[in-house]
């Protein structure tokens, strides 16, 4: 079994309250916010490592990110991935999900590995579109399903459970296939000291634009069908009138507020 896991380094979602927009440049200021591997991607990696433990084979991590993210990719190797591919070139910068998934598909092709399964976190904490798994499947002309909470492999089939609004739907996908793994669908393993030692000997292969057989019209910002305008920080502030007193007094005030808001109790 050859499994690829797509990962994305993102600013730590626990620190998003610190994000600001520079009033002059209108660009995002993310100083002091550490980069982590997108949480759902760790669930995808954990799912891949468990499948490898059951069925053998190898797990490759692939990412499209700036070169400085190598440390984060190394963390994936320390968790147990066998090898990593980092697609990194200014030409790929500013890509939307259409272009990102195209570039990832080309990167996967470049590895020369016949992957049976391609996993990705269902959505990233920063953009949170949840587009990439489906779009990667479309580019690669492979079956794809997102929001998967359970995955099993048998007889060339991936049996999956997909979360929907009122339950789960079960599907069988013929391999090779692409699966978007839901956040919190498993408990990603911790990095062990042995894992860190082993990761030192694992390779991270870097691909630039010239390494990939890409159509220039489909990469980076210029190849993206969606184009960003301005960034805004919505003003959501309200008055926050302080209510004080004993719980019973506050309760009486709250009841009046609730009734005034149109609730008949």
């Amino acid at each position: 079994m050859n499994i690829a896991v797509c990962v994305k380094p993102v600013p730590d979602p626990e620190k998003y309250n610190l994000l600001e927009i520079d009033p002059k440049t209108k660009r995002l200021v993310r100083e002091g916010i550490p980069t982590i591997i997108n949480p759902a991607d760790k669930n995808a990696l954990e799912a891949a490592l468990r499948l490898k433990e059951l069925h053998g084979g190898r797990v490759a991590v692939i990412s499209m990110a700036p070169l400085f993210s190598q440390d984060k990719i190394k963390e994936c190797l320390a968790m147990g991935a066998d090898e990593a591919y980092l697609i990194s070139d200014r030409a790929f910068g500013g890509a939307d999900t259409f272009s990102t998934s195209y570039t990832l598909a080309k990167g996967l092709e470049k590895t020369g590995i016949q992957f049976d399964l391609i996993l990705a976190g269902n959505d990233s904490a920063d953009g949170a579109t949840s587009h990439v798994p489906s779009q990667l499947g479309e580019w690669m002309e492979l079956p794809h399903i997102t929001n998967i909470t359970e995955i099993e492999i048998h007889d060339g089939i991936a049996s999956v459970k997909k979360k929907i609004s009122d339950g789960l739907i079960e599907y069988d996908m013929e391999l090779p296939a692409v699966a978007g793994i839901a956040r919190n669908s498993n408990q990603p393993r911790m990095v062990s000291a042995m894992g860190i030692v082993k990761a030192k000997n694992k390779k991270i292969e870097v691909y630039t634009q010239k390494d990939l057989d890409v159509d220039e019209g489909l990469i980076g910002l210029s190849g993206s069908p969606t184009q960003p305008g301005q960034l805004l920080t919505p003003d959501m502030s309200r008055n926050a009138k302080l209510l004080q007193g004993e719980p019973a007094e506050i309760a009486a005030e709250l009841l009046a507020i609730i009734r005034k808001a149109g609730i008949a109790v």
Partner: peptide, 9 residues
Amino acid sequence: AFGGKVIGE
């Protein structure tokens, strides 16, 4: 984006 902290056009 970023959990709604930022809105992008």
